[in-house]
């Protein structure tokens, strides 16, 4: 049977110029225009945003918990990617 209720959308809000959009929550809307409009009414009533992205939830792909070990753990020991790995004498000053 065809779905009669509106699909779910994910809402991303830029809280002020210069910052990236951040996930604010979800809502239902029949299409993208209404999703943006609803997002404005639902998620920015207290001046929370200056820009909104919406994407239908079904278009979001994500990693799985079962992948966590192979996806993320390997980067935990690559300490040479962090500045503190390198010894620079204090006399050199801030670097």
């Amino acid at each position: 049977m065809e779905r009669k209720d509106w699909p779910l959308w994910e809402v991303f809000v830029r809280s002020k110029a210069g910052l990236s959009h951040k996930h604010a929550g979800s809502l239902h809307a029949p299409d993208a225009e209404m999703a943006i409009s609803n997002a404005r009414d639902v998620y920015t009533r207290r001046n929370e945003g200056v820009s909104i992205w919406v994407v239908e939830s079904k278009h979001i792909h994500s990693t799985l918990e079962t992948d966590t070990e192979s996806m993320f753990d390997p980067n935990a020991d690559k300490i040479y990617r962090h500045p503190t790995f390198y010894d620079i004498p204090d006399e050199v000053g801030h670097m």
Partner: peptide, 11 residues
């Protein structure tokens, strides 16, 4: 007709 509309109309 839907929660989103309640919120919008009240706005």
């Amino acid at each position: 007709p839907e929660l989103e509309e309640d919120i919008a109309v009240i706005n």
